[in-house]
C-alpha cells in the first residue's frame, strides 16, 4: 500500500495497465513529455515510449476518431480530453460512432476506448474548464459513465474501465485530484462498474451523489448528525449503468431522499435518479424527494463559481427539509 492522491492513483492505474497489457496506449494533448496538464500521465512516456504514450495534435475529433479506429483494430486506447468542455468537438465521434460500433455491427466490431476527462468545477478555472457533461451522455445509449470520488476507486474503476469490452467515459473530478491522500494498493485490482458505494451509513435520510459532491455530502451529513439526523451517503460511482439495487435498498431503509449533483438542474442526473425512485420505490417514500443541483445557467467564471456549486449548507437545508416533512 502507498498513500496516494487521486491523480497519483490514476497515474498508477495507467502504469499498471500498460505493464500488464501491451494493447493499452495512452493518447491526448500534452500527455507525453509533459505528463498531462494535471500530471495524470507523468512518467509514462519515459517508461513506455512515444508509440504507446502519444502526444497528439490539438484536435479532439481526431483524437476520439482515431482512438475508435485503433480500438476496432485491436488496441486498448485510453484517450485523455484535456478538459470537460473540450469533448464538444469530439461529440460527433462519441455519440454517432463510439457508442454504436458494437450495436451497428451486431457485435462484429467493438470500440473499447476509455475517454478520461478531467471534469466538474471547483478549481477556479477559465470558462469551459469546469463543466458537468455526464447528462449529455446518459441519454445516449452505448456508453458507460464512471465518476470516482476516492483515490482507491479512481484506480480500481479506471482499471475496470480499461478491461471493459465497451467504451467508458471516465469523468475525473479535478477538484479532488489533490484534495486528499489515501491508502491505495500498488498492484492490480478492479472496482466493478455499475456498483455504488455506501460512503456513510445512516438511518434517516438517503443522500445520493457522485464525484466532487461526495465530500460536500459527507460534510453536510456530519453537520446533520450534530442535529440528530442520521444521513446515509451513497456514492453512485457509475451513472451508466446506475446501481438500482443500492438506490432502492437505501430508499427502503430511510424513506427520505436528497439527490445532489453539481450539473445544471433540468434533465440532470438527479432528475433521472428521482424518476428511477418513482419507478421502483415510490411507496417507500415518506416525503417528496429533494434535489440539490447547480443552476440552469452556464458555469460561472471563478469569482461566481461558489454561487453556483452546491455547498454543505445548501445540502444541509435540503436534509432538514426532507427530514421534517
Amino acid at each position: 500500500m502507498a498513500r496516494m492522491t487521486m491523480v497519483q492513483a490514476i497515474n498508477d492505474a495507467l502504469r499498471v495497465a500498460m505493464r500488464r497489457d501491451p494493447r493499452v496506449v495512452v493518447m491526448g494533448e500534452d500527455v507525453g513529455v509533459n505528463g498531462g496538464v494535471f500530471r495524470a500521465t507523468d512518467g509514462l512516456y519515459q517508461e513506455f515510449g512515444p508509440d504507446r504514450v502519444i502526444d497528439t495534435p490539438l484536435a479532439e475529433a481526431g483524437i476520439i476518431g482515431t482512438a475508435i479506429g485503433m480500438a476496432v483494430n485491436g488496441l486498448r486506447p485510453v484517450a485523455e480530453i484535456q478538459f470537460d468542455g473540450f469533448l464538444a468537438p469530439a461529440h460527433e465521434h462519441v455519440v454517432n460512432h463510439l457508442a454504436r460500433i458494437r450495436w451497428r455491427s451486431r457485435g462484429r466490431f467493438t470500440a473499447p476506448v476509455v475517454v478520461r476527462i478531467p471534469s466538474f468545477g471547483g478549481i477556479r478555472a477559465l470558462e469551459h474548464h469546469s463543466e458537468s457533461i455526464e447528462a449529455w451522455y446518459m441519454n445516449n445509449p452505448g456508453l458507460k459513465i464512471v465518476v470516482p470520488s476516492t483515490a482507491y476507486d479512481a484506480k480500481g474503476l479506471l482499471l475496470a474501465a480499461i478491461e471493459d469490452p465497451d467504451p467508458v467515459l471516465f469523468l475525473e473530478p479535478k477538484r479532488l485530484y489533490r484534495a486528499f491522500r489515501e491508502e491505495v494498493p500498488e498492484d492490480y485490482y478492479t472496482v466493478p462498474i455499475g456498483k455504488a458505494r455506501v460512503a456513510r451509513e445512516g438511518r434517516d435520510v438517503s443522500l445520493f451523489t457522485y464525484g466532487a459532491m461526495v465530500p460536500v455530502a459527507l460534510e453536510a451529513a456530519e453537520k446533520a448528525a450534530q442535529e440528530g439526523i442520521d444521513v446515509e451517503v451513497i456514492d453512485l460511482r457509475s451513472l451508466m449503468p446506475l446501481d438500482v439495487e443500492a438506490i432502492v435498498a437505501s430508499v427502503q431503509k430511510t424513506g427520505r431522499v436528497v439527490v445532489l449533483n453539481e450539473a445544471p438542474r433540468t434533465a440532470g442526473a438527479a432528475a433521472e435518479i428521482i424518476a428511477l425512485i418513482n419507478d421502483k420505490a415510490l411507496l417507500y417514500l415518506e416525503a417528496p424527494v429533494i434535489r440539490v443541483t447547480g443552476f440552469d445557467v452556464p458555469m460561472p467564471y471563478l469569482l461566481s463559481e461558489d454561487l453556483y456549486l452546491p455547498d454543505a449548507e445548501r445540502v444541509l437545508a435540503a436534509i432538514r427539509e426532507v427530514r421534517s416533512y
Binding site: R52, G65, N73, S105
Partner: peptide, 24 residues
C-alpha cells in the same frame, strides 16, 4: 467497417485503424 453516414468521420477511424497496424 459498417457504412458511416456522418460525413468524413470514417476517415479518422481509417487513420486510427492504420495507425494501430503500424503500432502492432
Amino acid at each position: 467497417f459498417p457504412i458511416s453516414i456522418p460525413i468524413a468521420t470514417q476517415l479518422n477511424h481509417a487513420v486510427g485503424c492504420a495507425w494501430a497496424s503500424k503500432i502492432k
